[in-house]
Design a protein around this nucleic acid. Structure first.
Lengths: 244, 244
DNA sequence: GATGGAAAAAATGAATGCAAAACTGCCGAG
DNA sequence: CTCGGCAGTTTTGCATTCATTTTTTCCATC
């Protein structure tokens, strides 16, 4: 299932030791749970009985509850009063909105990146780009996917804005669940188009054409969104909220 | 949500009853504390001893700690391991980054708003705009300030994107502390310029010129940022982090 | 046999208790 | 007079416990 990228899905048993050990316990739990959710360890809408997680992870309820509150604030879980936590299910509306905001953030990142990026960083993006192109020619979707994310992350990093980076990472996590699903089924038609868009992205970045890059990235994300929504309408069972 | 404008600074004693009573206690505490911080109830960098807040608000430590964790995730407080919570102090770098992201979000909002806004909503923005202009002529800065925020909020709301609205509100809260300070000292020179920019904003909105509005809003925010930073360099004591 | 309600069971929300880490004040050495 | 170390106090982090709400189960009734 999660063989798409490097590491496999984290087991619930190794949640505590899996992600880097934060100094405090609630931090450790938070990172472990977040990773567990992002990698799709639980299906959409699944209930999260805290008692069960407690004995599985070998911790008390207090730090776990603190972590759940934070995850709720991040939008990964939803807390029903007196009824526990559920894995937040993203419907079509949520995904549309998330991609729109991601588009806005990447547009901003592109604009800022062109102002601050160094030649070395551009060279690094070039290398990622050509590696990604090689993956494309090999039809190696997992590798393509991973490099694709690295490129976008590099552009965001080049924007020199920690707040933007943190926000981008947060939204990216929320979409990761969707991407894992949408990635299985490959939209071959979309793939070539995406590759061409990335050619433009690299070109604009090399010329440090901020506004142009900004616009390309925004439309790139809009196309990604369309592809994701197309996938959703074909496979409605996987991520549709069972809202009733 | 943060009322942002109307009422004065909330007293610590009325924290529990101040904001609308959320169903659960930790929610109540969270909203109360958030409002308290946003309205500047505590100075930058102040320590927040949880025991003290507990007896002040008459609650136990558990829900308060949960609320603090969420506020830390939102970026309003910072949690030092084993050393408690402090009011997060925004330095020049943070403010620059926050305004940049706000600019990106507002640019996105403008673009989307032009696609979705109704004539009635445009009329409402027009009214806000002219009221604001009247406040400008009266040199009534607080009223101007409140209407200014309402206009921006209306544009964000017209984008029809709940994720964007939530994100915008979050960042707006973080900047609220700065604005409260920067607002006292009035940058008369900047005021007229801002008013002219708002003329352009209304004009582009009326023509539903998305890209144009997007760009105006972004530059508008960049100018706001410059003004805020100018204020900061004149009054470094108020919001500078005493990092050391 | 199906339905409604009451009691039992389980889960959540909040409070308290306890161990460990940090801060304070004091004292002595240099 | 300043600096470093040590004991006492305070504060934080986590576990446990209590109270309230929800869910389940079982039984009586239709």
């Amino acid at each position: 299932m999660a063989e798409a990228s490097g590491a496999g899905v984290v087991e619930v048993g190794e949640l505590r030791t899996a992600s880097g050990a934060g100094s405090s316990l609630h931090e450790e739990i938070l990172q472990g749970l977040r990773r567990y959710l992002v990698e799709g360890g639980l299906p959409d809408g699944a209930r999260i009985p805290e008692r069960l997680l407690c004995q599985t992870m070998g911790v008390s309820r207090t730090p776990l509850r603190e972590a759940l509150k934070v995850l709720a604030a991040e939008g990964l879980v939803e807390l029903l009063p007196n009824r526990g936590a559920r894995v937040r299910a993203f419907g079509e509306k949520d995904i549309r909105e998330l991609f729109e905001v991601m588009g806005g953030l990447e547009a901003l990142a592109g604009r800022l990146a062109c102002e601050h990026i160094t030649d070395e960083e551009i060279a690094a993006v070039e290398k990622l780009h050509y590696d990604m192109y090689a993956s494309y020619m090999r039809r190696d979707l997992p590798a393509y996917f991973a490099l694709n994310q690295k490129i976008h992350q590099a552009i965001v990093a080049a924007a020199r804005n920690a707040v933007l980076t943190a926000t981008y990472t947060n939204f990216s996590s929320r979409l990761q669940r969707v991407r894992y699903n949408a990635n299985r089924e490959n939209h071959k038609d979309r793939w070539g188009e995406a590759m061409r868009e990335h050619e433009q992205i690299l070109d604009a970045l090399q010329r440090r054409a901020g506004l142009e890059l900004s616009d390309i990235l925004f439309r790139h994300l809009q196309n990604k969104r369309a592809a994701a929504l197309r996938y959703l309408s074909d496979h409605p069972s996987e991520t549709d909220p069972m809202k009733g």
